[in-house]
C-alpha cells in the first residue's frame, strides 16, 4: 500500500529524512515511531504530496505521489495532530467542503459517516462550539468520506482525554476490523502503538533504525528477573562471561543472544551464588524503543536488526 524508496528530504542544509526505505503492506496497522522532530511528520507530508522529496520515491496505492498525486490519494484519508477546521462553518459544511476536493459526495453519505463517528445531532452546529473530542470525530469523518483504503493518522490522540484516547483506539480497531483499512499510525505514544499495531518502524534523526513486527521487538532481547544474593557481583560475572548484555539495580538482566535461563542459573550456582528464582519478562515496547534510539544515538543502530541493550538496563 505504501512503498518508500531511498526517500530523502533536506530543509536547507538540515536533513529531515535520510534515505528512508519503508513498506506498509495492505491490511496492516503500521506504527511509525519516533520522538518529536524525528522526521515522522515530514515523511507523512511526503506521502501526501505536501512536502517535496529531495530524492527517492513515494508510492501510495501503487502510484507515485510526486507524479500522479490524484490517483495516489484518491483512496486515502488523513488526520493530523491538531484537528483544525473552518470554525465559522458547521460540521456538515466542513465535511461537504473537504469531501468535494476528492469527489462529489452525497448528503446521505455525509450523514452516514457523521453518524458512524458519533457526530450525529451536532453536525449542524458551528465547529467553534465543538469540544476537542468532537473535532477529533469530525477529523475522522472527513478522512472516511472518500471511502479510503488507506488511513494516515498523524498523532490522532494528541490532546484527547483518556476517554477520548480509548474511543479513538477502539475506532481505529473497528475501522481495521470492519472495513479492512490499511492504517499508518504515526505516534510517539508507545502504549498506543503497542496496543494497535502489528508492525512498526522507528525513525530517529530522519533515519529508520528499526523495521519489524511487534513480536520481534518483544523477543529481541528477553529480560530476566534474577532473585540472587549479591546481585551486583552475579551480574558482573555474567556480563564478563558473555551470558548477559546488561543489568539494572532492580534485578533485571538482558540475555545475550543464544543464551538461555537454565544456563545462567547453572553458572551462577556453580559460582557459589544462591539463586532463589529466575523469571523471564517480555520486553516492553518502551524498553525496546529506548534501546533502539539509544543505540542510534551512539551510532550502533542498524535498520531491521534490534540492538541488544535496553536503555533502562545499564551495562554493568
Amino acid at each position: 500500500m505504501i512503498t518508500l524508496e531511498k526517500l530523502t528530504k533536506i530543509f536547507g542544509t538540515r536533513p529531515a529524512v535520510e534515505s528512508l526505505d519503508l513498506t506498509v503492506p495492505k491490511g496492516e496497522i503500521f506504527g511509525l515511531l519516533g520522538h518529536n522532530g524525528a522526521g515522522k511528520s515530514t515523511t507523512i507530508g511526503m506521502l501526501l504530496g505536501q512536502v517535496w522529496p529531495t530524492s527517492g520515491s513515494v508510492l501510495v496505492c501503487g502510484h507515485d505521489v510526486t507524479r500522479n498525486r490524484h490517483d495516489a490519494l484518491r483512496k486515502v484519508g488523513a488526520i493530523f495532530e491538531t484537528p483544525i477546521f473552518y470554525d465559522y462553518l458547521s460540521g456538515r459544511r466542513n465535511l461537504e467542503i473537504l469531501a468535494t476536493y476528492t469527489a462529489p459526495t452525497s448528503a446521505q453519505r455525509i450523514r452516514e459517516v457523521a453518524e458512524w463517528v458519533g457526530l450525529g445531532g451536532r453536525e449542524d452546529s458551528k465547529v467553534r462550539t465543538y469540544s476537542h473530542g468532537m473535532r477529533a470525530r469530525l477529523a475522522l469523518a472527513q478522512a472516511l468520506l472518500p471511502g479510503p483504503e488507506l488511513l494516515i493518522l498523524d498523532e490522532p490522540t494528541n490532546g484527547l482525554d483518556p476517554e477520548g484516547i480509548h474511543e479513538m483506539r477502539e475506532t481505529i480497531r473497528r475501522l481495521h476490523r470492519n472495513l479492512g483499512l490499511t492504517i499508518l499510525l504515526s505516534s510517539h505514544l508507545l502504549s498506543e502503538v503497542e496496543q494497535l499495531c502489528s508492525r512498526i518502524a522507528v525513525i530517529h534523526g530522519g533515519r529508520k533504525v528499526f523495521d519489524g513486527t511487534l513480536a520481534e521487538t518483544r523477543a529481541s532481547a528477553p529480560k530476566l528477573l534474577l532473585d540472587v544474593d549479591r546481585f551486583a557481583e552475579a551480574a558482573a560475572l555474567l556480563l564478563t562471561e558473555g551470558w548477559i548484555t546488561g543489568s539494572d539495580p532492580t534485578g533485571h538482566v538482558l540475555l545475550a543472544p543464544g543464551r538461555n535461563v537454565s544456563g545462567i542459573v547453572r553458572r551462577l550456582v556453580e559460582a557459589g551464588f544462591n539463586v532463589e528464582g529466575a523469571q523471564r519478562e517480555p520486553q516492553t515496547l518502551e524498553d525496546f524503543y529506548l534501546s533502539v534510539v539509544k543505540s542510534a544515538r551512539l551510532g550502533q543502530g542498524t535498520p531491521s536488526a534490534p540492538p541488544p541493550v535496553a536503555a533502562s538496563i545499564r551495562p554493568s
Binding site: R69, V76, I84, Y86, L98, Y101, P146
Partner: peptide
C-alpha cells in the same frame, strides 16, 4: 496559517486547480 491548507492538500486536488 490556520492549518486548513494541509487538510485540503491531503486530498487529490492539484495545487494549480486549488
Amino acid at each position: 496559517e490556520d492549518g486548513t491548507l494541509r487538510l485540503i492538500l491531503a486530498r487529490p486536488i492539484s495545487r494549480v486547480r486549488l
